[in-house]
Write a protein that binds this DNA or RNA. Sequence first.
DNA 1: GAAGTCATGTAAAATGTTACATGATTCA
DNA 2: TGAATCATGTAACATTTTACATGACTTC
Lengths: 198, 198
Amino acid sequence: MDVKDLCLGALSFGDATGYDIKKFFENTFSHFFLAGYGSIYPALASLTAAGLVSCRTLAQHGKPDRKLYRLTAAGRRAFLDTLRDTTPRHRLKSEFLVLLYFAHLLAPARLQAIVDQQLRNFDGNLKHIRQYEDCCAAAQPLSPGAHFVCGYGKAVMTAASEYIRAHRHSLLPPTGRGAAPRKLIQARRQPVHTASRN
Amino acid sequence: MDVKDLCLGALSFGDATGYDIKKFFENTFSHFFLAGYGSIYPALASLTAAGLVSCRTLAQHGKPDRKLYRLTAAGRRAFLDTLRDTTPRHRLKSEFLVLLYFAHLLAPARLQAIVDQQLRNFDGNLKHIRQYEDCCAAAQPLSPGAHFVCGYGKAVMTAASEYIRAHRHSLLPPTGRGAAPRKLIQARRQPVHTASRN
DNA sequence: GAAGTCATGTAAAATGTTACATGATTCA
DNA sequence: TGAATCATGTAACATTTTACATGACTTC
């Protein structure tokens, strides 16, 4: 399932331009699927060539023409096929966790900054989801799928935040006012024969 | 942060072959970073060319020669620089959630299968993390980073599982013994003008 | 006056996945 | 006898990211 398929999905809710589709992705999928213009515009071009979407060009003054895309019957069928056949993968790619795994090689201040930044990100994402829910719910009730997915995002990010807040101390060397005078902990050089056998 | 950097990280725990490194990734990073041979072997070749790792070839009978890689001083420095400079991103890419977002276009049986499969995956991953913790802890206490990252994985996947178990019914049309005789719910055709403006 | 929004795209570079190719040994 | 483990790699393909290029209008 790639950006092309997601574009079909976005268009299943109505006609849109590439720009609109990016907005839609940001509002709706931001916490589990992202795409930039550099993949959306080529995807739309390729879908048009394949006859899965059609395109009406609307002239504008000053700005580039708006290109309004619409699902064709073939496109709708293709999307349903994708939904039927796609293997539901679920992959996390986290430099954040990699860095924390190597906490013993990081300066304490760096570690602090990384953790704080991630907590802010989660807070921002949570806020974003809540806004999306409120703003959509004002217009019409969210579809069950949208509702489920928002709830999932909130549940997971809340759990992640709580875990981080509860356990961040275990990564940091004991420091600060009231504690014992700051003792720099040396990054232990690991012995060079853990993973090898023979 | 790419596979090359992760290879340096793996080698920071000791010399290893490409094969060992893949094992290491699977044991250690599997829930937030994966790489296959097709990216590991080229990465090691390129690191060797760049002088960040050195390579000893050990002949074997029948099998291809083992190539034992070791971090060079430059490699160790490069890895520390990466740890210092990498922006800690954290991205989920989930076809699972995309499919659920479009629950209204999925056959009920398909929806069931998707959800069940994902729950099994989470259970499997949780088991995998627990085994890793137990097996490592038997040898030596886990590093704080490793411990934190395992705990994070468990916390998040547990929350995800619980959320799914608690809310999956909201995706499925009411069905089954005891309930009202199965009433097929038609996938509502969405009107075609939600996302467009103008 | 600066920043943000609307609006399109291309091209190069980086990255990663998949399939292929080989083959002995060990375990059930 | 078949599957799994050990062990390497290449080549083609797919995909994504990043930077570039343009430019008017609106809001602070």
